[in-house]
Write a protein that binds this DNA or RNA. Structure first.
Lengths: 194, 194
DNA sequence: ACCTGAACACCGTTCAAGT
DNA sequence: ACCTGAACACCGTTCAAGT
């Protein structure tokens, strides 16, 4: 009935771009490649996304949403806070290893308008802050969450980008790192008065 | 005497590229922009670098060398190991904040041939492993260095890419993070038997 | 109202021709 | 032996013309 119903959608375009990104890298996410993937010509994409940067941003938000869902799900699983933190850490690492290029996108864009939105970032940090509150108390939760997040982000980033090339048991090093941080957070340097 | 002495050099080209990178981002590091910066036309660059990727790689190695020099210099400065680690951590953060785009380059290239060389990486980690050896002993040094490096890399990466948008005292959070890790490394989870 | 081919500016890279 | 203009393939983006 309508003169020309859309042959594709913003969602389909975003999914296609994300798939190409993980398979062949950011440079391969070409307007032409994405267009071919959804069965259309490149200029048609501009009916659904403003420009390539906006498309990359959409992919970035998509990844952030998935990660937040993974981290926030099943929050009632483990009883003590230490175990909950370990569960979160494992989910975090698993997600990044499965979506390395997409995850890198979350921190790659130095220019504004392309980087992840504030709400998406807050959603990512929320479950971590919640667990930390029950470990170090409310007032130290943000600092503790930052320390944990910095370590987890740094570890998986280094792992994914090939920074751990000296072998050794990387799985064990990850588990050990959680122990170090948990121990340090309740150690002498971080009394509840902090 | 010689028919045509080089009007530029690989070093000058690398320095120009690095300067453009820090000022305007990776996308601005164009063969034409670099060429203009060294007073030559774009095709002439190919007498000194194989292609753009090789130039980016040269910049990356340059940055890695500078960072290694910063981290390794003056190793005899502080007496106790904890203070030495704090000094390294501060130098690390200062360097990254001064060379954000160059530092990001060290971990951006997922494709081989473009990422930092193994020797450069080893040089970066060496002073950290050395300090860790005097804190947790030889056998736990590599693991401890990885935990510290992951945290420091993660913290400054998040900071530089705008991941800490909730305000708060970021300087204090960094100092606190060092305390947490130092405390955790000598805590109950990490006895010398490790 | 969406799709398309053609066109434009730009970039990486090659190469024959200059000196 | 290095430099250059011209050329090629490719990409992002725009737009008039189709249906």
């Amino acid at each position: 009935m309508s003169p020309a119903p859309s042959r594709t959608s913003r969602d389909a375009i975003t999914i296609a771009a994300r798939s190409i990104l993980e398979q062949d890298g950011l440079d391969a996410v070409t307007m032409q490649a994405v267009a071919e993937c959804v069965g259309v010509r490149a200029p048609s994409l501009y009916k659904h996304v403003a420009h390539r940067d906006a498309l990359i941003r959409a992919v970035s938000d998509d990844v952030a949403g998935d990660l937040a869902a993974v981290l926030g799900s099943g929050r009632t699983g483990a009883r003590d806070a230490g175990r909950r933190l370990r569960v979160i850490a494992e989910r975090y690492r698993t997600f990044v290893r499965r979506n390395p290029a997409g995850y890198a996108l979350l921190f790659a864009g130095l220019d504004p308008g392309q980087r992840t939105s504030d709400e998406a970032l807050a959603a990512l940090g929320e479950p971590i802050v919640a667990v930390m509150a029950s470990i170090v108390g409310e007032e130290g939760a943000l600092d503790a969450a930052r320390t944990f997040t910095a370590w987890a982000h740094g570890f998986v980033s280094l792992e994914v980008s090939g920074g751990f090339r000296l072998g050794g048991d990387v799985d064990a090093a990850y588990a050990r790192g959680i122990d170090v941080i948990l121990s340090g957070l309740s150690g002498p340097a971080n009394p509840p008065s902090g």
